[in-house]
Nucleic acid binder design. Structure first.
Lengths: 252, 252
DNA sequence: GAGAAACTATCACCCAATGATAGATGGTGG
DNA sequence: CCACCATCTATCATTGGGTGATAGTTTCTC
């Protein structure tokens, strides 16, 4: 399902290898060679060569029940976290933000048709067992709309054409009209207030983060639940959140 | 590489792409296209195609000053951490271990000629600013010798031939004889006590972690400093550490 | 111990990766 | 303001390596 689908096939080998990796990323557990071949739509022999090579390099590991991602990916992520501007700048800002608001604060960056959580500080309980950093989330639900709004209209339409069936937490499918309306609202107001979009009962306030050249670099948000905080109450934190976005922006 | 003799170069494309990634991993900052080409010993055109493809996929990102690793690697690492047995099993054990000993405890796994830190809980201050998970460390200094000791002698010699000039924290170069002696001691005692090997003034006690099939799966250790704890005092924690290794082993 | 599934190995074909070269872009300093 | 250098992009003929069909070997399952 990766980029290998189109007609202009260029860079097939690498694309296929990355498809294999991302297929293992999506998998809920270890995958057999044939599973990978089917899932990534590759010939078994090709899959074998690719997977073995990834195993040799530590990007994939082989266990009793099949193949899964390998520890080298931890090393690469470590290098990313240590050097990336956003990953180093955001945490202290979020720490302060969560201290004053007592809410969970996060920073996302866009990556293709998704956004990735690069920093988070939780409000109430300071430690979270399973750390969520690195999680992929859709662009067109919740705070992702802030990142979408920065794109030209035609790209948004293309995006919607690629994944038209995004269902909100309520179970309803979001129409293109609704998405367009939300995007317009974001562009007008400069923020997005989402209620039960990605998760039922979740309430989030999201702002874009702009770098020194006014280019969008990510999105920062506060999350809470409807039963604890009201929408107006969350909106009251808008100045604080805006200061946080600015603080990150200038340091990038 | 020794799989089929005579063929020599197999799977060139993917290997080169991974070389590019790991060259960016080692880099201290963003790299220019020509830097990558030189560093990875590739033709500029090849580098360009590869890097652009990695950028398209989010594995590499392009900034003002050059190329660096991309946020997709965070996602892959996230999937690894969530699913990998060692990564999920070790943390609670280390938490308990660090609570009773008041020392920093860690778990490493071998990956090629290095070991990778997959879990750590610090003793004194509960939160560490820059998280070290994913860090690559040599196999032949400190606790790495426990992982080396599990390899057949000939592989250890091969390893030493590949990287013969490992300098300890003291500044001295470790000879093959010293390494062999340490490995023998590990095999006899079942643990390794390292003083100022990787870092000056550091004192560490490391044990192997075996899975249900008695195969080595990693290494667990306690770290402290010579000015706070004596060697005998650290060795007193051997039973506790051994229980931790066992607890992890059975759950893998 | 029979059967199936998972993985490995082999090989001829031919397409896609390769690398030399030329062109576009942009930033810097005189 | 222009000349210069560096970075990145684009093009294209060549050929080497990736591809996929098939057969072989190992490992698990019943």
């Amino acid at each position: 399902m990766g980029a290998t689908a189109g007609g202009g096939n260029q860079g097939r080998t690498l694309d296929r290898a990355l498809d294999v990796l991302e297929c293992l990323e999506r998998a809920r557990g270890p995958l057999r060679l044939s599973d990978i071949a089917r899932e990534a739509d590759l010939h078994l022999a090709t899959t074998q060569r690719t997977v073995n090579q990834l195993v040799r390099r530590g990007y994939v590991q082989q266990g009793r029940l099949g193949y899964s991602l390998g520890p080298v990916l931890l090393s690469l992520a470590h290098a990313f976290v240590v050097h990336d501007r956003m990953s180093t700048v955001a945490p202290p800002v979020l720490t302060e933000l969560s201290a004053t608001t007592r809410l969970t604060s996060s920073v996302y960056v866009r990556s293709g048709d998704e956004r990735i959580l690069v920093a988070r500080v939780s409000g109430a309980d300071p430690l979270r067992y399973q750390f969520p950093i690195g999680r992929r989330v859709p662009l067109d639900v919740g705070g992702g709309k802030v990142l979408l709004a920065a794109l030209p209209d035609e790209e948004i339409e293309e995006y919607h054409r690629r994944s038209p069936e995004t269902t909100l937490a309520s179970g309803r499918v979001q129409t293109l009209e609704e998405l367009r309306a939300d995007v317009e609202r974001v562009r007008r107001n400069g923020y997005h207030l989402a209620e039960s979009e990605r998760e039922l009962g979740a309430l989030s306030l999201t702002l874009p983060v702009h770098d020194a050249d006014k280019e969008i670099a990510g999105a920062i948000n506060l999350v809470t639940t409807t039963d604890v905080t009201g929408a107006d109450e969350l909106l009251a934190w808008l100045p604080e959140l805006s200061r946080g976005a600015g603080a990150i922006g200038v340091r990038i």
